[in-house]
Write a protein that binds this DNA or RNA. Structure first.
Lengths: 337, 337
DNA sequence: CTGAAAGCGCTTACAG
DNA sequence: CTGAAAGCGCTTACAG
């Protein structure tokens, strides 16, 4: 790139100084409109491209924000992460920033290796996307760079965090089942596994409480072992009429199982999911579920990180972004039964 | 970041020059081992972080490579793109480079707006990932920056390209069907739609030719309209015993349809797909399919782009990366029939 | 409105 | 082995 056009080249051609060119191109005051136009036209003509590195060095900032995703979230069916990255980078661009997507591999996560984008000052701040190990959280906390947690949170830390409102989403969708006449409602998910599964459970529970429905312990159905691996879902002896699943994939598994047992959804059982990912539409019937508001999450995260880059002492706390229910065909109104 | 530690800080503390610090930290010769160790230790102690922007400016390069994906590929079930980005960025890192993922939105694609990472010299080269409009290809061709096309190609251009070997993959998987006794084999895909569907068709055709099986025109079954939208698959009057589908998603649709008609897979019909994406495992039975070698594609693309960054006149041509067949349960051996 | 000077943090080429 | 000087391309603060 040594051969590329600089402000100085433009300045020399026009017999002005590079200061003037800089002002003209950056729409700063102190240049006559006439000269500004001339400079801009010549820049265009010569194919001038701004040198971001020079500005970076001068200002001591990069205008890059790292978006870090642990490797294990890049597997099948996780297009959520690509979508949210897209939303983030679009928002960043509106503020004159760029996203650098960094996929943290499992080994580096275990060995607590910070990403090289940190060590080489490639970024002014970091958005951490997706649950990461406790130790890594601590490690990254020890480092003085603006950071945001997105889509997960850690109880022991006071990092500014943007998450989806799991509690409220599960609460709302359980309300919806109750409105459709269901009172025997099970929750499917290992409630000790992740904070989002737990919070969704609590939202479900609150809905029951509000409707004076007693929580039946046998209606809390496990879906995965302590290491997160899905296990075969065991149905209780006394069956509910509806299932609130902690995510669409588990709802999909459940529907498959119910069908194999000869049941029909939603005629015999209503089933709802969470996330509105591919499993929601691939299931037959398609699932009523809670959609995460990706746009809003990205927008908020970007707002926070830029706020912190500009003023490292700013605090935003933990913000929850509400999702919305997507109504499809997996719920039946049984009120008239 | 103005307050961060610089080489000069380290130099002053040690009473040496910053040149020496630079040499020591970069493992260049011209520093005694003793001094080098001292410098490295102090750097560590002070939490020195290298300033990539300064190096960039000095050398006129950024050590960033843009990976550009058109927006429409970030939808449901396309985790392929995140995976390949991951592989690319890992390979880049091995060479001291970084990936910048840039999602080109549909509007910018239509209006032929080049990404801002180009205009601001944020990257030294570009990997274009996923079929992009002809006009945009032309636009980006007009611009003098090292570039690689990945996972698609354009017949009229001579850009260096890395694609999966569609022809060979379809050829091999059709051979496999024939080895399992099938002779009436249909191909499912609109062969005028994309180059990969067409190439896969040709691989299928070659396999037929080699086995002296006549191509039956009725066995070429359309799956989408000219705008790429899936249409209902129409089965021919005389039915084949096996279907080669141009992708897993279409294979999934086909299996669903066959089941609705009361048929069983693979007992009544064998079905194979291509891509080995989520549809391959979500289908019941899971599909025998062709897996794309993401690692190898990424590695090759990175090798090419860095080669071109270092020497812009280097040419690599069009390289095809072979996939491999993943054997699952959607094919039945009917030889003994 | 216009521009000379200084500086951001590094590296290269050269001198000692 | 060590370092003074120059320069990468921009912007800021100031002078005219």
């Amino acid at each position: 790139m040594k051969n590329s056009v600089t402000m100085r080249d433009i300045a020399e051609r026009l017999g002005v100084s590079s200061v003037t060119v800089s002002k003209a191109l950056n729409d700063k005051e102190g240049v006559s409109e006439e000269l500004r136009t001339k400079i801009k036209m010549l820049a265009e003509e010569l194919g001038y491209r701004f040198n971001a590195a020079a500005k970076s060095m001068k200002e001591g900032v990069t205008y890059n924000v790292g978006v870090i995703i642990p490797e294990r979230f890049t597997g099948l069916s996780q297009s959520f992460y690509l979508k949210i990255y897209q939303a983030i980078s679009k928002k960043l661009e509106e503020h004159g920033y760029y996203g650098m997507l960094y996929i943290l591999d499992t080994e580096d996560e275990e060995q607590l290796n910070l990403p090289r984008i940190y060590y080489e000052q490639k970024v002014d701040g970091i958005i951490l996307l997706g649950q990461i190990s406790k130790d890594y959280i601590e490690k990254i906390q020890s480092v003085d760079i603006p950071k945001i947690f997105l889509d997960f949170y850690d109880e022991h830390s006071d990092v500014d965090t943007v998450i989806t409102d799991n509690f409220y989403g599960a609460y709302e969708i359980t309300n919806y089942l109750i409105k459709n006449g269901h009172r025997k409602i099970a929750y499917v998910g290992n409630i000790y596994s992740t904070s989002s599964i737990q919070d969704r459970f609590l939202g479900y529970f609150k809905s029951l409480l509000e409707h004076r429905i007693k929580l039946n312990e046998k209606f809390i159905i496990n879906d995965r072992d302590e290491r997160g691996k899905y296990i075969d879902i065991e149905l209780p002896d006394e069956l509910p009429t509806a299932f609130v699943c902690n995510c669409d994939q588990v709802a999909h598994n459940l529907v498959t199982k119910l069908k194999k047992l000869g049941y029909s959804v939603p005629d015999d059982f209503s089933v709802v999911g969470f996330d509105n990912d591919i499993y929601a539409t691939i299931t037959d019937p398609p699932l009523t579920t809670v959609e995460v508001d990706i746009e809003e999450m990205a927008k908020t995260a970007v707002q926070f990180i830029i706020g912190k880059i500009k003023n490292k002492h700013r605090k935003f706390g933990r913000v929850q972004i509400k999702g919305r229910i997507i109504y499809r065909d997996s719920v039946k109104n049984i009120e008239t039964r």
